[in-house]
């Protein structure tokens, strides 16, 4: 395959197209996204370039399992949240409230469904049998990366939905969601890390980049998935937690009359 410096034109093209669609949509709808949103999009696109072309892509093709996993982590844990953050509500509304999209999108982004969708997709693509067909650089490999991006967006939507019509989960539920995400992630990562043999055919071929043996490479990949994503999620939920505690501290309404349960009690008392 290509050399380290090679940037595959189709990927770059696709990324540029994304930027084009964003700009086009904003022009067509006649509104400007906020500067933070543009920043988020820029970051997302840059990280996408970084993940899908250049050295990472090169080493993935050169059979570095660890970098393959790293690439995946970027695709499901970093880029989708940034994309969601970059979407202004009017732009998202134009897409997701279409009559034939909205009902389906509502079902798929219900937390339980989104969680299951992501976990099953993620588990399946690491199943050796399946992975042996798609980890190769043969065609489906590219589609798998798209799939990862999409299930990533589904996964993050309940946390970062840009639309008030699709309310985000409450803070404690968000934390619980991320906490539970550890179960499928560990269930995939732990066996890979602990396996005594190299599980995937493609990566069994030596030599491996960076002077690692195939097995050490696999362990490293498992650890990136396990510990790397763990620490990453930890940072995210730290942010959520302190947002939550600050909001509760600030708003301290004596009794939350907007909450139905409190209201009913107050009414019963005064009746």
């Amino acid at each position: 395959m290509g050399s380290m410096g090679e940037y595959s034109p189709s990927v770059i093209g696709a990324i540029l197209a994304l930027a084009g669609i964003y700009a086009g949509a904003s022009w067509k709808l006649g509104k400007r996204p906020g500067s933070r949103q543009i920043l988020a999009l820029g970051l997302a696109l840059i990280i996408m370039c970084f993940a899908l072309t250049g050295p990472i892509d090169y080493y993935v093709r050169e059979r570095s399992f660890a970098l393959y996993i790293f690439q995946q982590m970027l695709l499901v844990f970093v880029i989708p949240p940034l994309i969601l953050l970059s979407l202004p509500d009017w732009m998202a509304r134009a897409v997701f409230t279409r009559p034939w999209i909205e009902p389906a999108w509502r079902i798929i982004t219900r937390p339980v469904v989104a969680f299951l969708t992501f976990s099953s997709a993620f588990t399946l693509i690491h199943y050796p049998l399946l992975c042996d067909h798609i980890c190769h650089v043969r065609p489906p490999y590219g589609d798998i990366r798209d799939l990862l991006l999409i299930v990533g967006i589904v996964l993050w939507w309940p946390l970062l939905s840009p639309l008030p019509e699709f309310p985000r989960m409450s803070y404690p539920t968000q934390i619980m969601y991320l906490f539970l995400l550890m179960i499928p992630m560990t269930a995939v990562a732990a066996p890979i890390t602990m396996a005594e043999t190299v599980l995937y055919m493609f990566y069994r071929v030596e030599p491996h980049p960076f002077g690692l043996t195939a097995h050490a490479d696999q362990v490293l990949g498992g650890l990136i998935m396990w510990v790397g994503q763990g620490v990453y999620l930890m940072c995210i939920f730290t942010a959520i937690f302190f947002r939550w505690s600050r909001r509760d501290d600030r708003e301290i309404p004596a009794i939350n009359l907007r909450r139905a349960a409190d209201l009913r009690i107050v009414q019963r008392r005064s009746a």
């Binding site: 930890m234 939920f237 730290t238």
Partner: peptide, 15 residues
């Protein structure tokens, strides 16, 4: 908040 947070974090890490 830090006290509550550290409880959650410990639980997270303990797995």
């Amino acid at each position: 908040p830090m006290m509550a947070y550290s409880l959650v974090l410990i639980a997270f890490l303990s797995y």
